[in-house]
Design a protein around this nucleic acid. Structure first.
Length: 579
RNA sequence: GGUCCCAUAGCUCAACCGGAUAGAGCAAUUGCCUUCUAAGCAAUAGGUUGUAGGUUCGAGUCCUACUGGGAUCGCCA
């Protein structure tokens, strides 16, 4: 239940009673930024004044009685350019709190997704090494977005796509074979240029020895390449899945390029485009603004993407006749559409800019315009350690792994922190700051609020040993006793949760949840502190069990909403803080 | 050169399909721990939202041009 939406609907109904002609699509009821403006505000007069042929304030005068008659409205007034602000009776807020307690963790669930299947692809790193800091942000964004859309009523599939066929994977196989020889006791010296130098490859070699013994030793590459490659890919994927599990990420579906090709999906997709006369043989113009020494015009198999607004047509085959990288991706999205996804989200690094635009034409063609791909690009994370920028370099093997991050600062910090910026913005992850100055890390602030709630409950248990502190029991408290301004404000912040879920889901912007939780925690910390100086505002009053019960209901509500939000973030709602 | 993204307080960032006096945290200054956990609270200060126009009841948000920063362009992935 979104209380603002409820009032908006009631208001629209009332407006239609005045005149069925009104276009009320832009009428909204929302929470004013400034609480002194009241509980709710509507722009109805300003939006409709033209249709009514009146000036905004005069029209607002006419609408005022309408507002005052809405259920539970205590007062209403006109402000600014024609806003109508109104306040609700205490009872409305008490009822809302009761509702929250009854909904529990499911408070904020909405149906805006209408059960629509949505495919969220994220991480999708190729199996050539462990997860590192650079992968982490996209992983967290994707997973949080999936949680969010799930709560918003979509049918979510979390998908991982990897390439197990390209040159990168052959390099992996060669590295694995070298480490395999090492594990068999050969002195391999330094890892040659062009192979993966990381130590994580050692265990691959050892595992291969364990499985296959020395049967690949001294054989030619053509003999061992395929089996070793397969083994190494499998091993890497296992490693990646374990890494992701460290931050609570588990994909539903893994799809690989080889399957796309071998199952014939790629050929089918290509033929589909051919049949639509979108494939031809031609020559591309030389790339602009870039020195290309080895460029020469060659006839290639091209896709008429320019017909769909692309800058130029795209090559689908290389000059040697093999598929260009884009073709398997095209086929992969063809496959997604065939699997019933009309909404496909893809979380990618910003270096993939243009991916959406390159794939959109084919997606339009495959789905007849019904399917939509939305790529969420995220900027890089700069990792600082010991005051210095850590550069990622696979070559040197000098990478900060996801595992290291989790071991040093914990999964909760990693997950929450990654969500405190819009995906677009670059961010800095400073190990020292995150550990030393906890104020720099909002996850503590939010978790602390939850821990404080738990603390109040524990104290209540001591003060009133016979009181039933279950959420259900507390919801029967006399909530009319909650009438101080700060407590009511607390409820109003909670009232905004369903709307936050909806708007964040519609915009595909999960980071808003983090900011909301911060606000919610802030309201609670403030309320708590009021009780330090003014004992009449404490949650617990030894001499008034009923009042205590009512206030504990409020605390339980805060706990519930915090837990509900933290669930989306994939962060644990802790019961006490340590250290 | 084309395309896309970004520009908001000293720093890092918010601002809910365009709403009222643009908000937090950090850094600065000042109060609050015999009182439900001070990883907290309260307060002060800090702004021509890069520049110039436009659209309208109303613009940080939309449009145009410009300035500055980043990414991208391919038969690479």
């Amino acid at each position: 239940m979104n209380i603002y939406k409820t009032y908006e609907n009631e208001l629209v109904t009332a407006l239609k009673n005045i005149s069925a002609e009104f276009d009320t699509s832009r009428v909204v009821v929302e929470q004013p930024r400034d609480p002194s403006h009241g509980d709710m505000a509507t722009n109805a007069a300003m939006v409709l004044c033209k249709q009514a042929g009146k000036n905004p304030r005069a029209f607002a005068e006419e609408l005022l009685p309408l507002i005052k008659e809405l259920n539970g409205v205590e007062s209403a007034e006109i402000a600014g350019p024609g806003f109508i602000n109104f306040r609700l009776k205490q009872r409305q807020w008490a009822d809302l709190l009761n509702y929250i307690l009854n909904e529990g963790i499911g408070y904020g669930d909405t149906t805006v997704g209408k059960g629509q299947p949505v495919n969220i692809e994220y991480v999708s790193a190729n199996p050539t090494g462990p997860m590192h800091a650079g992968h982490t942000r996209g992983a967290v964004i994707g997973d949080t977005l999936a949680n969010l859309l799930d709560k918003a009523g979509y049918k979510v599939t979390r998908e991982y796509y990897f390439n197990d066929a390209g040159t990168q994977v052959d390099v992996l196989a060669r590295t694995a074979h070298l480490r395999y020889r090492e594990a068999l006791g050969e002195d391999i010296g330094d890892i040659p240029e062009g192979l993966y130098p990381g130590d994580y490859m050692k265990e691959v070699g050892q595992a291969l020895v364990k499985r296959d013994g020395d049967q690949w030793q001294g054989k030619s590459e053509s003999e061992w390449l395929v089996p070793v490659r397969e083994f190494a890919v499998e091993h890497m994927m296992k490693m990646i899945r374990e890494d992701l599990r460290l931050i609570g990420i588990k994909h539903d579906v893994f799809t690989n390029e080889r399957d796309i090709v071998e199952s014939g999906t790629l050929d089918t997709a290509f033929k589909f485009l051919e049949d639509l006369d979108l494939i031809y043989t031609g020559t591309l113009p030389p790339p602009k603004g870039k020195e290309m020494e080895d460029w020469e015009p060659v006839p290639l198999t091209l896709f008429r993407s320019s017909k769909f607004g692309d800058q130029q047509d795209r090559a689908l085959k290389k000059r040697d006749g093999t598929w260009a990288y884009i073709m398997p991706d095209i086929a992969y999205h063809y496959d997604k559409i065939k699997r019933g996804y009309n909404l496909m989200l893809n979380v990618l690094g910003k270096d993939h800019a243009g991916y959406q635009e390159r794939l959109e034409p084919t997606i339009d063609a495959f789905s007849n315009g019904d399917a939509k791909l939305k790529v969420i690009y995220n900027s890089i994370v700069k990792v600082f350690k010991g005051g210095e920028l850590v550069r990622f370099s696979k070559r040197s093997g000098n990478i900060i792994t996801l595992r290291e991050m989790v071991e040093e600062v914990g999964a909760d910090v990693v997950r929450f922190f990654m969500m405190t910026r819009t995906p677009d913005a670059e961010m800095e992850f400073d190990f020292d700051k995150v550990v030393e100055q906890s104020k720099d890390n909002p996850v503590f602030y939010v978790q602390y609020a939850h821990a404080r709630c738990c603390s109040v409950m524990r104290n209540a248990g001591e003060m009133f040993p016979n009181m039933d502190l279950s959420v259900k029991a507390l919801s029967s408290a006399d909530l009319s006793k909650i009438d101080d301004e700060d407590s009511l404000y607390m409820i109003k912040v909670m009232a905004g949760w369903p709307k936050m879920v909806e708007s964040a889901a519609e915009a595909f912007e999960p980071h808003r949840i983090a900011f909301y939780l911060n606000d919610l925690a802030s309201a609670f910390h403030s309320l708590w502190s009021k009780g330090r100086t003014d004992t009449t505002l404490r949650f617990l009053d030894e001499n008034d069990a009923e009042l205590s019960r009512a206030r504990l209901a409020l605390v339980a509500g805060v706990m519930t909403v915090l837990a509900s939000g933290l669930a989306i973030m994939g962060v644990k709602p802790v019961e006490e803080m340590h250290g």
